[in-house]
Amino acid sequence: MAGLTKQGIGAILAKQGILIAFAIFMIGFALANQRFIAIDNISGVIRSSAILGVMALGVTFVVIGGNFDLSVGSMMSFSTIVVLDLHDKLGPALAIPAMFGLTLALGAFIGFLVGYMKLNSLIVTLGMLSAIHGLTLTWSGGKNMDIADKAGTWFSVFGQGRILGVPVPILIFLGLAVILGITLSKTPFGRKVYAVGGNGQAATFSGIPRARIVFLTYLMSSFCVAVAGLLQASRSLGSQNTVGQGMELEVLAAVVLGGASLMGGSGTIFKTVIGVLILGFIQNGLLLMGLAFYVQYVVTWAIIILAVWLDVAAKRGRLWSPTA
């Protein structure tokens, strides 16, 4: 193996590291527990990743556009509570569009602040995380929200139904992934998102309306949150006010794990889906190994730090550099 220097190995590891690490994990889990690779387990993992996954699709647009969105977890709680509450008041057929409208309004407000007002997205969405949580509690009066007639509503189809044997959440997640994947990679809008995130000034100098593009990424993110809220509400038909709490970080983790740069301008929907699945399978594997569920918090974050390190390492072409 001529030319495969120590630095060369480092570079390969840095580029493909996360996939290699994932493969090692998968093989290890499979050897440790046969059930891990059973079809129903795999389908179960994808299904339980669907809500996180749908949110991650939207956040991918925001991150590629060069911003953060830490409000999605709290916003998902809002959507869930609102749609459950309105379900009994307006009926499901009106509750769903009403919830989408309200969630999109929140997204538009964030998009306005970050895009047009040019405020720092970290601060805005961190603030909105807290503000929306307050809004949710105000709406619910702090109580859990439940649908009165759980057996008699068709509303459960989104979270619990199956089409041709495939769970509906999986279909929605993958369907949305395909549509948004194409939007990002094949349309002028998608190209502009990359340009704005890659170099906002150059995008402006090329006649791209930077503020509007940023605004639209937040609108897309809130749309995905609304879908996630719908899935969540429909699956459980009742919910606490804190159902989405902490998910913003898991979502960000999946996006970064997929390889999108937090500096903006890079990443793909496909990679985000991979990131979501990695996260889901690792959590599932740990549970199957009999570890308490809270161990997954530690392991998940260890993996994310590994991913960020490998991302930086890939850019400088070696794992460790004394300078820069």
């Binding site: 502009k192 990359y194 150059a202 301008g265």
Partner: peptide
Amino acid sequence: KHQGLVLGMNCRDNMTLPQID
């Protein structure tokens, strides 16, 4: 580097950016 190009993008995408619509 700051105003003319999106350095992380490829050559073609940079060139067609103003008329992508």
